[in-house]
Simulated assay, not measured.
Amino acid sequence: MNHRALAAAAITVVLWASAFVAIRSAVQDYSPGALALGRLAVGTIALFAILLIRREGLPPRQSWPGILISGVLWFGVYMVALNWGEQQVDAGTAAMVMGVGPVLIALLGGWFLKEGFPGRLIAGMVVSFAGAAVVGASMSEGGASSVLGVGACLLAAVSWAVAIMVQKPALRHASALQVTAYGCLVGAIACLPFAGSLVEEAARAPLSATLNLVYLGVFPTAVAFTTWAYALARTTAGAMGATTYAVPALVVVLAWVTLREVPGWLTFAGGVLCLAGVAVTRSKRQTVS
């Protein structure tokens, strides 16, 4: 991975980590479907404004199957399922279940995309997954978790993994901006059944919640999904999936700084494991031919 792609991946990880803090505030006033639609609508507007400025037209025909499928699964199903899941279970349980996503990406990428199973990648993912589990356990509120909530988080993880399998081939024919912008549009269209809820909830939501929704649309969606696609086009799906294990560690830091939630030693240790695992996967450059 070249330096620009590495920087793009770093931007993605930081912005996706910040999304967890924003979502925690927004879900108090917006239902899962309404929040997803609002976020996608804002993201679509921002992305198409950039498309117009850059004068990029429609993506090539060969990229459309990947754009349509990833748009429905990742921008649509994933966002609604994750929002819903995080309302049903505690943050720790959600973090542990979502940790399955990068593992599925590596397995599916090795099989469907013929990326193989590099030893450093597998070793790093084992370490990072252990770290994510430790972070999740330390953040768990205890008690029984909602079966439906866990199922929703698992659905989000599976949708994300499958979406990456079709998004990467699409990036061979279209730019990262095109794939992201039109995928976001497809996701927004898929979420239109929640339009009524969005209008009603926006009318009574406090300004802080709506600003969080706008932030989610512009930065963790429009910017971060584009930088993700840019980096994904220049490395393997497995390596990119492993990179996202840095997110739990950054969430702990951001919650500490912005929410004054002081992490316990177990949470801190799990975050260190997550970062150590990512370092192992990056100790040998993962590139595409």
Rank of each mutant, 00 (worst) to 15 (best):
R234W: 07
P193R: 01
F194S: 08
L213F: 03
T226F: 02
I164E: 15
V166M: 02
C191N: 11
Y230K: 10
T180A: 00
G183Q: 02
A161S: 15
V199N: 00
T221K: 07
L216I: 08
E201G: 10
A222S: 04
A205V: 08
A202Q: 08
V214F: 07
G183V: 01
V247T: 05
V199F: 01
T244V: 08
V223Q: 12
L207K: 11
A209E: 05
A233S: 15
L177G: 09
A170Y: 09
S197L: 05
A176T: 10
A176M: 06
Y182Q: 13
V218Q: 11
T236R: 10
A242N: 09
S175R: 10
P169F: 11
A170V: 07
V214R: 05
F219N: 14
Y182D: 13
W228M: 14
G196D: 02
A222D: 03
W160S: 11
V186P: 04
L213T: 13
A233I: 06
I164Y: 13
A163C: 02
S197E: 15
A203Y: 08
S175F: 03
V214G: 09
Y182N: 13
A163R: 01
V186W: 03
H173E: 15
A188T: 01
L177D: 12
W160Q: 11
I189G: 02
C184V: 04
L232I: 08
P220E: 13
S175I: 06
A202G: 09
P220L: 09
L216M: 14
Y230H: 14
A229Q: 12
A237Q: 07
L198E: 04
V199C: 00
G187N: 01
P220M: 11
L232F: 09
P169T: 12
T226L: 03
T180N: 01
A224Y: 02
I164G: 14
A237R: 06
L171D: 15
V214P: 06
L211R: 05
W160D: 12
P206F: 05
V162Y: 06
Y215D: 06
G187V: 00
Y230S: 11
Y245E: 08
E201Y: 11
S175T: 15
A231Q: 13
I189W: 00
A190S: 04
